[in-house]
Design a protein around this nucleic acid. Structure first.
Lengths: 324, 324
DNA sequence: TTGTATGCGTTATCAG
DNA sequence: CTGATAACGCATACAA
C-alpha cells in the first residue's frame, strides 16, 4: 500500500480507505489509486488486514466427509450464501471422529475465523469448552438438540426413524430389518425406527450394522446378511442411506426377489438417483440446500446483532415411491 | 504469548520458541510453558504468525464443483496429504467459469497461500499473469499440457476419447453416439472420440450435448434425444460421465432395448456404482486419489526445493464390463 | 478529504 | 538457552 500510495501521490492510509470504502476518498485520487493498483498488480494482504481489524472474513466449517453428497451439498449451499456476503470457508474433514474434530477446531481457531460451523451435536467436552471460550458464533448443522453450543439448524433423527416406522406400519408391513453404516446419527435413526416398529408391530427388527462409510457393495452385502444370517425372509428394510438402499435393491434383483412384495426398501436422503432406480426408491427427504442456507443465515443474523432463534428445525419428509 | 510467558516466568519470545521448536527451550521451562498454555487455553494466532514469517501454511484449491465426486475425491486425497504435512486447504468452487476462477484466485491470493491448486489448464490470461507474478508453486490438476503455469498433474483427455474410440472399433461397433454434459474437458474427450471413430469406422457420430451438470435425468433424456431426434438406432454410446451412462442404461431398460446388443454404453470415471449396475458399466477409470496425492507431492517437492517434473501424466484405463 | 501515530500477535535477527 | 528489538502489512483513532 505504501508503494501504491507513493505512485498515486497519497499516503498508505488513503489507499487502505480506497479499498475498504471508496466513498471516503475523492473521485480523483480514487482513480489515481486504482491505476497504481492496476500497474503494480497489488493484492492486499488479508492476513495483515485481519490482524489489525480482528475480522478475518473467514468461516471455519467442519464436516465428517467432503465426498459424501449429503455433506458436500450442505457445505455448497452454506458457502455460496457466505461467499455472497464476502466470507470465505475454511473446510476440513473430521472423518466422523470427535477427537479429530477437536484437533481441527483447535487449528481452525488459530486462523481466527469469524464463526464456526460444525456437523452434528456430539462433540468432546474440550471442544465445547474451547468454542464457548472464544465467544464466536457457532452453528451446529444436520441435527437438533435442546442444548446447542450456540446456534443449531437441522432436524430430529429420532423423529425421522420413528416416522419411517409409522409409515411402514401404516403401509401394512409387519416385519422389518435395517441396514446401517457410518455415523452415530444413522444409528439413532435406526434405534428409533426399531423401537417404534417393535412397539407397534410387536416383532423385533433384524439389524445389520457396518462400521465406516456406506456403499453399494455394503448394501448388497447387507441384504445377504439379513437373509442368510438373520433369518429375515420378508418385510420392509430401512437403510441408513439411499446408497445402501440402492445396493439392497440390486441384490434383491440379483436374487429374483420381488420388490416391494417380498422385500420393501426405504432409503434415506432422497438423492438424485432415488427416483430413477427401478423400482423407484421410497425414502426420507431432507432439504440439504435449505439446511446449509439456514445455517449461513443464522450466522449472518448473529453478525448483525439481532435476535436469532437458537434452534431451527427444518424437518424431513417421507417420499413414497415404488420400493415400499 | 505475553500472558503465558509471564505465568511461566519467561518472555514472550521463549513461548514462541516453545511452540515452534520445543527443542530450543530447556525441558524445565518447556514444561512450565505448556502448563501455562493448558491453564489459559491459549490458542496461537496463526494470522500474526503468517504475517511475520511469510508462511501461511495455507494451500488454496479451486475446483469446478465440490458436490461432484470426481473433484471432491481428488480434493480429499490432496488435502489429506497436505494436512499430513501441516497445511490447511482453502477451498472454493469456480462453477466451471474461468472468470469466476479469476476472481477467486485474486481473493485467495490475498490470504497469502503457500501454493495454489487449480483444476484444468484453461485459465484467463489475467489469471495466469497474477499466478506467475506471485512466484508461488501452482499445480494444475486433472489435465495435462505442454505449457503448464508451473506444475501439472493429470492425463490426456484427448487420449482418453481416442482410446475409447479404438476400444469401440476393436469391440466391433460401427456406429456411435455421444451424450455429454458440462465442461470443456468433456467436450474435448467427445471430440477426440468422434474424430477417431469417424476416421476408423467411416461413420459420423451422433451427438447430444447438455449445458451444465450431468445427472441421471439427463442421461435418460440423452438417449431419448439420440433415438428420437438424431435417428440413432444401434451402436455404442460414449457418455461424458458414469452418471450420464447410468441414465442411458436406465432409459434403455425402460424402452426394452437390449444392452449391449442394440445399445452399448461406455461411461467415464469408474464411480462406485459402475460395477454394480445391470449390466455392469464399461468405463474409463481415472485414479482420482492418486491424482490428488501426486498434486500434493509435486507441491511438497517444490517446497523442498528439489527438482520436480513439470508434467506428470497418470494416464487412464478402460475397464471393460457388461455394457459394451 | 487526507495524514499521523499506534497497535494487531507473531517471527527473525542479533546479543548475551 | 534466553531476551530485546525490529519488522510483517494493514486498520483504527484522532488530528488537521
Amino acid at each position: 500500500m505504501e508503494t501504491v500510495g507513493r505512485m498515486a501521490g497519497v499516503s498508505q492510509v488513503t489507499v487502505s480507505r480506497a479499498l475498504s470504502d471508496p466513498s471516503k476518498v475523492s473521485p480523483a485520487t480514487l482513480k489515481r489509486i486504482q491505476e497504481a493498483i492496476a500497474v503494480t498488480g497489488f493484492v492486499p494482504n488479508a492476513l495483515a488486514g485481519a490482524l489489525a481489524s480482528r475480522k478475518s472474513k473467514l468461516i471455519s466449517a467442519l464436516v465428517p466427509s467432503i465426498t459424501n453428497i449429503v455433506y458436500s451439498a450442505m457445505v455448497k449451499a452454506f458457502s455460496d450464501r457466505m461467499r455472497g456476503h464476502g466470507y470465505q470457508i475454511l473446510l476440513s474433514e473430521t472423518g466422523f471422529d470427535p477427537h479429530e474434530e477437536e484437533r481441527l477446531i483447535s487449528t481452525h481457531l488459530s486462523r481466527r475465523p469469524d464463526a464456526i460451523m460444525l456437523t452434528g451435536i456430539h462433540h468432546t467436552a474440550q471442544a465445547r469448552k474451547m468454542l464457548l471460550g472464544t465467544g464466536l458464533p457457532v452453528v451446529e448443522l444436520w441435527d437438533i438438540t435442546d442444548t446447542p453450543i450456540d446456534l443449531c439448524v437441522g432436524f430430529s433423527h429420532i423423529g425421522a426413524g420413528r416416522g419411517v416406522a409409522e409409515f411402514a406400519i401404516g403401509a401394512g408391513y409387519r416385519t422389518a430389518g435395517t441396514v446401517s453404516a457410518g455415523d452415530e446419527r444413522a444409528l439413532r435413526r435406526k434405534d428409533a425406527f426399531a423401537a417404534e416398529f417393535l412397539k407397534a408391530a410387536g416383532s423385533p427388527v433384524d439389524e445389520v450394522n457396518f462400521e465406516g462409510p456406506a456403499s453399494l457393495a455394503r448394501g448388497r452385502e447387507g441384504l445377504r446378511l439379513l437373509l442368510e444370517e438373520k433369518g429375515f425372509e420378508r418385510g420392509v428394510i430401512f437403510c441408513s442411506s439411499d446408497l445402501l438402499a440402492h445396493g439392497v435393491l440390486i441384490e434383491a434383483a440379483a436374487r429374483g426377489l420381488r420388490v416391494p412384495d417380498q422385500i420393501a426398501v426405504v432409503g434415506f436422503g432422497d438423492q438424485d438417483f432415488a427416483q430413477h432406480v427401478a423400482p423407484s426408491l421410497t425414502t426420507v427427504r431432507v432439504d440439504r440446500a435449505s439446511l446449509g442456507m439456514a445455517a449461513a443465515d443464522a450466522i449472518l443474523a448473529r453478525f448483525e446483532g439481532g435476535e436469532t432463534p437458537a434452534v431451527t428445525d427444518l424437518g424431513f419428509e417421507i417420499i413414497r415411491r415404488g420400493s415400499a
